[in-house]
Design a protein around this nucleic acid. Structure first.
Length: 562
RNA sequence: UGUCCGAUGGUGUAACGGUAGCACUGCAGAUUUUGGUUCUGCCUGUUCAGGUUCGAAUCCUGAUCGGACAACCA
């Protein structure tokens, strides 16, 4: 393991870190942070950022803080704070010390703002939002300086303190940095530092009515916490000069946190935006933030994804600066890979048709031994009842099988998993032509484990005893959107028109009786069907399974294949 | 006709001036009491044009294409 570890090439962030380490920067200290705004639930995109920031700290023996970027009280809530903590822990990471909050630094940030004013580098503007916006110019045209730009330090100080004291209405005044209205970088054209919001903050309550903007809070918070490498996504690249500028105004000594940007994660057939998730939740397109179809961490968790598989996914996806769209198949691959090792194999029939064994004693019940997981001997075995009346999968029988159909058909033999080899002798159908019952004979010498069972047959199918099976609810999930890029919307239509109408199907399946004891969160593989996870709403009377992922995607092709 | 960033198979990601590799997908085959797993093989790639060099995915120049930036959001 350590060999491959050493041989693996470094990503560009690791290269930067190792350079910094070699040049003795920050005395070899590595300190990262994960800085979510508590205005929504975390999604798979955040998992990438989390694995990166925590992962770098782990790899280089450093620390990683959790800091809530809570500078905008109107969108934020403790509900989100709690969920974010839970999701990070579930992913398997532990932040250094207590969770931090940008709001912890409001006093310091205010002091630094006063310092900036005294330096003549910030001023209070009272133009309307529209005026200020239009005076900022466009990316291709320079902005115009505000008429309030050259107020005296005393006047600015007075106005800013009165802003803080609540003397002014929301939106009537802002504090701006005095940088360069002609800068080719829009963010340097006298950016807003503070705005007035008479709003209740989930942590500071009503103490403040002015709140710092991201650019004034983020770098400073990094600085206060001693962050060395501040990893964020590409859209903040343009902010970096401002990040550095703000720090240069207030920092003492040579230490500076360093912002490094990487490309965010995109998945096809998936939207990745808290704003849109909120719409899906509020407008009840999904059952909640943890709907198993959602790409939120809690949704994936409920769906049956494991932390290991998510971490592995992020690892495989890699890290770079170019835009990327990952195929959903890769995520599904990492889940299957992990689930294959840990999920218990069980039998459940989702679309049952009855099979009667004509030569099997109708009174008799045998207990068949079944392996819980062929990939893991320590998972042990269990016993399943077998009798003359069984259910098998309707798809596992064909009257006129095509060439490569290996399962049950008239005159053909097939093995019942953990049971006997049976031969189809006939079947009945109703007036609609649907098969109602299949008749078979079984070969008593071929019971699983006996010598006679070594006989080769083309295929093995799963079954449950019709007299012992329990009914379970099975929720079959498909991709939430029916197009690879849900952001591309047809003319005149809403992005939600891209939702897949078949993203959820609920069926009742016949399952082996032991499944009555299944506990929420447990992972199962339904033989030859897919991986399933017991839903949190399950009760002993009513077991609910969420389909995590199918075993293979080409199930449909198997029947029709030439 | 602004600034910044980027461009390697279908999708991701390596190669840091010296044989374009890995993973996923797809296709074929072997094994299999899961049409699963495992194993084997195959397909497909350096955006373009110049330049530097014995040698360029890599360095330089230009073009092309893509993305980000004009919230009192983060």
């Amino acid at each position: 393991m350590d060999n491959t570890e050493n041989n693996r090439s470094l990503n560009f962030i690791e290269e930067i870190i190792e350079e910094d380490l070699q040049s003795g920067k920050n005395n070899g200290r590595i300190h990262t942070r994960f800085p979510p705004e508590p205005n929504g639930y975390l999604h798979i995109g955040h998992a990438k950022a989390i694995c990166l920031s925590f992962g770098m700290a782990q790899k280089y023996n450093g620390k990683c803080n959790l800091r809530f970027d809570d500078t905008n009280p109107v969108t934020e809530d403790v509900e989100y704070v709690d969920s974010i903590k839970e999701d990070i822990s579930w992913l398997g990471f532990a932040w250094h010390g207590e969770a931090h909050y940008a709001s912890d630094y409001f006093d310091q940030l205010y002091e630094w703002a006063l310092k900036l004013i005294r330096l003549g580098k910030a001023y209070v503007d009272e133009g309307s939002a529209d005026d200020i916006s239009s005076d900022r110019g466009t990316p291709t045209q320079p902005g115009k300086e505000s008429p309030y730009r050259d107020r005296s330090v005393e006047e600015n100080l007075d106005l800013f303190m009165r802003m803080k004291n609540g003397e002014f209405e929301d939106g009537s005044k802002i504090l701006r940095a005095k940088i360069d209205m002609a800068s080719p970088n829009m963010h340097m054209r006298d950016p807003v530092l503070y705005r007035i919001k008479h709003a209740h903050h989930h942590r500071t309550g009503d103490k403040w009515c002015i709140y710092p903007m991201y650019d004034w809070a983020h770098g400073q918070s990094d600085y206060i916490e001693g962050i060395t490498h501040s990893l964020c996504t590409l859209e903040f690249e343009v902010h970096r000069p401002l990040y550095d500028w703000c720090l240069d105004q207030i920092a003492e000594g040579p230490y500076r946190p360093r912002q490094i940007e990487f490309a965010r994660l995109n998945l096809n057939y998936t939207v990745m935006s808290k704003r849109r998730f909120l719409q899906l939740v509020c407008e009840e397109y999904v059952s909640g933030w943890d709907d198993p179809r959602m790409p939120t961490i809690c949704g994936l968790r409920r769906r049956g994804y494991t932390p290991e598989s998510l971490r592995n996914f992020v690892e495989i996806v890699g890290i770079a600066k170019r835009e990327n769209v990952i195929e959903l198949a890769l995520l599904e691959h990492t889940v299957r890979e992990d689930l294959n090792k840990i999920a218990r194999r069980v039998m459940a029939v989702s679309n049952p048709v009855k099979v009667v064994l004509e030569n099997y004693d109708p009174e008799k019940v045998e207990m068949m031994e079944a392996e819980n997981n062929p990939e893991d001997e320590s998972a042990g075995t269990r016993e399943i009842p077998f009798c003359s009346e069984l259910y098998i999968e309707r798809d596992d029988f064909m009257e006129d099988p095509p060439k490569k159909f290996f399962r049950l058909s008239p005159g053909n033999e097939v093995r019942l998993k953990n049971g006997y080899i049976v031969k189809c002798t006939g079947f009945d159908r109703d007036e609609l032509g649907q098969v109602t019952e299949i008749r078979c004979t079984y070969d008593p010498l071929t019971r699983s484990g006996l010598e006679g069972a070594n006989r080769k047959v083309k295929s093995t199918i799963h079954w449950v005893s019709a007299r012992h099976a329990i009914d379970v609810e099975v929720r079959l999930y498909d991709r939430l959107f029916s197009v690879p890029d849900p952001d591309v919307v047809e003319e005149g239509k809403d992005w939600k028109s891209n939702l897949n109408p078949d993203s959820l199907k609920i069926i009742t399946a016949k399952a082996e009786p032991g499944l009555a004891n299944a506990k929420p969160g447990e992972k199962y593989q339904f033989q030859r069907t897919g991986y399933f996870c017991v839903d949190k709403d399950s009760t002993p009377d009513h077991v609910i399974f969420n389909r995590t992922v199918t075993l293979k995607d080409d199930w449909a092709k198997i029947v029709t294949r030439e």
